[in-house]
Each structure stands twice: as C-alpha cells, then as structure tokens.
C-alpha cells in the first residue's frame, strides 16, 4: 500500500538562513565600522575648537613678543623676571598650574639671575650674553647685549594638555 502524504506542501530537507557565527561576525564588523566612524565624527567636532585654541595661544604669544620688542631691551629682563606669567582670554590653565596663568616668559635664569651657563637647547643656551667672549656663572641682568626668550603658553584644551612656544632674541 502506497502511503499518500496529506500535506500539499513539500517540505525541503535543507533550511536556508544565517548561522549564529554568521550573525556574530557580521555584528562585530558592523560595530568596528561604526566605532571608527563615530570616532571620526568626534575628532572632527573637536578639531574646530582645538584649532581656535591654538590660534589664540599663538596670537597671545605674538602680542607679547611685540610688547617685548617695543620695550627698552636693557629693561626686559628686570621687568618680567619678577612677574613672568600672564593670562590668555579663552584658554584654561592645566590642573597643576600654580598661579592659574597659562602664559609664561622663560629666561635663561637661575634663582632670578640671568646666567650664561644655563643649559636649555630651546634658548640656545649656554651662550655668551654680554659679548665678553666667555660663558660664566655670573649674573648678567644688567649687562646683557642679547637675551634669548621663550614665550610659552600651556593650557588645558578639549584635546587635553596643549603647549605653544614662541622664541625670540632681544638685542640690547
């Protein structure tokens, strides 16, 4: 006797679809791609603010440079050594900044004295500051003829700690 199937639908033996591994792999790839894209969006949105902060920092450094150049060169060191720090509108100080002022004027000095024997590559030191042909450990605050200065702006920006340096050489 031949059995006749009552069901009009022939059920296939194999089932189509995705396995768990397929889904997991696709999900991982999608998450990685989305993560990369989101990171790019976040970086781009920070870029404008970071650019503005950097421009403000260099503008402040440039203004300080012009102020120094406009002064009598022989008085620059004594004028700023006691109060070398200044503020910049729009920039916040880093957490460990003692006075909360983001700008700083750096001299080749030790303990308030202008010294030729200071080792600082950014200032081109050690070097002869008073033109006597020798590099010594004396205080040349009153007889320098050249004065290397670095104006440093250090702030806490949206991208973390940022620093901008501007170097100049004042000639007496």
């Amino acid at each position: 006797m031949r059995l006749i199937s009552k069901s009009p639908v022939n059920r296939p033996r194999s089932r189509s679809g995705f396995t768990l591994v397929d889904v997991a792999l696709a999900t991982v790839i999608l998450v990685v791609a989305a993560g990369g894209l989101i990171g790019t969006v976040i970086s781009t949105s920070r870029l404008a603010r970071t650019t503005e902060e950097t421009a403000d920092a260099y503008e402040a450094a440039r203004a300080m440079t012009e102020q120094i150049h406009a002064m009598d060169a022989t008085t620059v060191f004594t004028t700023f050594i006691g109060a070398p720090n200044f503020d910049v509108t729009g920039l916040g100080a880093v957490a460990d900044d003692a006075d909360g002022l983001v700008g700083e004027i750096l001299f080749p000095s030790v303990g308030g004295e202008l010294r030729e024997d200071v080792v600082d590559a950014s200032l081109g030191m050690p070097r002869d500051l008073n033109g006597d042909g020798a590099i010594d450990a004396l205080n040349h605050a009153d007889d320098y003829i050249i004065l290397p200065i670095t104006i440093r702006i250090r702030w806490m920006g949206v991208s973390g700690r940022q620093t901008a340096d501007l170097s100049l050489l004042v000639q007496g």
């Binding site: 203004a63 012009e66 102020q67 406009a70 002064m71 509108t89």
Partner: peptide, 8 residues
C-alpha cells in the same frame, strides 16, 4: 577676534 600690537 581681538589682536594687539605695541609700538615704541
């Protein structure tokens, strides 16, 4: 934007 200069 604010800019500044000094002249002797």
């Amino acid at each position: 934007k604010t800019v500044q200069t000094s002249v002797r």
